[in-house]
Nucleic acid binder design. Structure first.
Lengths: 125, 125
DNA sequence: CAGTATCCCCGAGGATACTG
DNA sequence: CAGTATCCTCGGGGATACTG
């Protein structure tokens, strides 16, 4: 049942295991694993959130980085932005299908980290 | 069969969905998703590698960042360092059990990214 | 409310040279 | 070979003020 994890080379079909530096995946990896990228995607996995809600959920993020990271994630097609032309404005952010795909891979990671973080920083740091 | 992904709040047992800023998980998340962290861990998933092999595999990494990132990953208990006291020296790096655990969550992520990267940067960037 | 615009700083990270 | 030491740059990212 447990298919032993295939090697990176097999998974990526690299015959030498080298992932080139100039490579689209590096760009996407950087976007997703950017300082605030993971946190925003994971926050949105709970459902649609407004700008202000996102700010509060992802504690510590500045307005600048919230805007910037959201723009990148939107450009990559991970996040959908719905702006109501009302006064005052209301903007909803949610995951696209693509965003949900990658977030489903991110959640187990976050989960593992949250479970083990204490042991890790407690012992070594 | 498919258990629908539980919400972040459920997974993390946060009643408000807010992941605090001052929190060990943030530190570990930063280490793992650091610029070179993912790439190194994933490279080591293929098995033990020597310093020079790692440098070549993770194309673009400088010696400084290789050393620095490896030290962090070692301190976190993800990576084991085996130094043979020979001349010339030989140092082997491999994943610990803990390293293998988290890498098994990283591989699907990398895999997804490599599969979809072209579409993503091709269309939006 | 949901952003943009600006200024500015610090440290991540690269280049280079050196060493056991 | 497997690093360390040093210098230096560039841009990530915070603080603050302003706007439709």
């Amino acid at each position: 049942m447990t298919v032993s994890t295939p090697s990176l080379s097999e998974l990526l079909r690299l015959d030498d295991g080298v992932l080139p530096a100039a490579c689209p995946s590096r760009v996407v990896l950087d976007h997703v694993t950017s300082r605030w990228g993971v946190l925003l995607l994971v926050a949105l996995s709970d459902g649609t959130l407004r700008w202000g809600e996102l700010r509060r959920r992802v504690e510590g993020i500045s307005e600048k980085m919230l805007a910037q990271t959201l723009r990148v994630l939107e450009a990559d097609g991970f996040v959908r932005r719905d702006a109501q032309p009302t006064i005052p404005p209301r903007v909803d952010y949610s995951l696209t299908d693509r965003g949900r795909e990658i977030t489903e891979l991110l959640i187990p990671l976050m989960h593992w980290i949250v479970q083990h973080a204490e042991d890790i920083v407690g012992a070594g740091d």
